[in-house]
Design a protein around this nucleic acid. Structure first.
Lengths: 249, 249
DNA sequence: ATGAACAAGATTGTCAACAAAATAATTGTT
DNA sequence: AACAATTATTTTGTTGACAATCTTGTTCAT
């Protein structure tokens, strides 16, 4: 066995002057390259640039993103775990199919996660948080109907304040991963008229949180998200975007 | 763009007689090798054979499991994503530290997930399922106090029947991943005396499910798991196993 | 024509050698 | 002897070549 025994993590290498002032290293830091191709691919898939069932050839990706094939490979593995890509041995990777039932499931999970987060948060929200939430709501109310982009940002912020006060890092992690998916589709929810309803629900949620009505707060958040998702599903059924299957795997 | 356009997934390669009857291929099918080292490492970490902060050197693992270094590498990446291993660039991999707060979080998440699953399951459980649940409970009741291993199996089965009827594949997946962690620690719960209490709670849960009391079923499952976890935490506080930190990162 | 055998090309999976970084051991200086 | 600088060793990260597999295109017998 090696020297590093138990707790004694040897500090930074003792004798070593910082020889290079700015040029960190010759190698381009593959950690960042992986993030680059991951972000790029996620964007391309979510935004519809890469359609479901489209092939993702390793060499092509490697060239397109100017990374090694191994990096592309690793990125594909990661995306497979995230559910965006489907892989089969010796047959390569395709953009995963998105089906209406799958979207429903994702939103159901989101409702569960954020509802529980709200329940936990009732015991941990600070006066500062309530202040921030109230200000956020006030800004939402004053918003014009056409500021969809802006409202979306406020909406995300509102939920984020609550979620991040749940006190459970695992849960926060799960919410973040899940909402990587849902937040893309959320844009459709911003149909005019739907915004005012949302703001009203937000107000009720804030009220419940203030009065420490844990179960009520949870119920409200759950229903809030489920209702919004039903709206989205209804919309999608009428107006299916490219690459969404009605009843997929 | 390549040939594989749209839906037309070409079937299995047309002309090719099954030349080799049994010997599938020369290569040992690395897919299975990866599972081998993954399972082995998970077991070693969970069972305490590998303690937290212990170094996991790629070459050593490769030799120990008779796989290539790349396989060991891949396994470590996977385990890092699962949270069992901690990695730092150019410094290697250590067994992740387990802290009491982390265990609490995992159980809280389990309670949320399975509670919601129970809620959803009330609308989908079939008469056959109820039959199976009732039989399971009967067997639990007739169990002797010392049959801890056996009872654990029944307990897992009971919850599995409910969870798998939630109708949400995403949720099932999350439960499965989470319980990879919790199910190991669950063994401690089987303190004598605790079993009878558990069986009583199971009975109440079954009753609520039968009467389609969705919210009540959910509450009960949540409390059921949280209570059990409190018991476990209490036990761990007094009798900390090697490799569990009281307040870790 | 139809469809099976075969060959050619493309793509994925794996491994081993090499480069970069970190850690440990050694040497030299005060 | 204590500390800094250097060298050596170990370990990780990456690249490129090669093998296994799948896909496609062609040929040939029926």
């Amino acid at each position: 066995m090696l020297g590093l025994t138990g707790a004694g993590r040897a500090g930074p290498a003792p004798g070593r002057i910082a020889a290079m002032p700015a040029t960190r290293s010759k190698r381009p830091l593959a950690r960042e390259e992986l993030q680059k191709i991951l972000k790029g691919l996620r964007y391309e898939i979510y935004s519809g640039l890469r359609l479901p069932r489209e092939r993702l050839v390793e060499t092509e990706l490697a060239e397109a993103y100017a990374v090694s094939r191994m990096m592309a490979r690793q990125a594909l593995n990661q995306l497979t775990q995230e559910g965006l890509v489907h892989q089969e041995p010796y047959r390569g990777a395709l953009v995963a199919e998105i089906s209406l039932p799958k979207i429903c499931e994702k939103y159901q999970v989101a409702a569960m996660l954020e509802g529980y987060a709200a329940k936990l948060a009732t015991k941990r929200l600070t006066p500062d948080d309530f202040q921030a939430l109230a200000e956020n709501l006030e800004q939402q109310r004053q918003l014009q109907v056409q500021d969809i982009q802006q409202w979306q940002e406020f909406n995300r912020q509102f939920h984020r304040i609550i979620n991040y006060r749940c006190g459970n890092a695992q849960l926060i992690q799960m919410i973040r991963e899940n909402s990587r998916f849902t937040s893309y589709w959320f844009i459709v929810l911003s149909a005019p008229g739907r915004i005012t309803a949302n703001v009203r629900e937000h107000q009720k949620i804030l009220q419940a949180l203030r009065q420490k009505e844990t179960e009520q707060a949870r119920d409200m958040v759950e229903k809030h998200i489920l209702e919004a998702s039903e709206y989205l599903i209804e919309f999608l059924k009428k107006n299916i975007p490219v690459g969404v299957w009605r009843n997929g795997p």
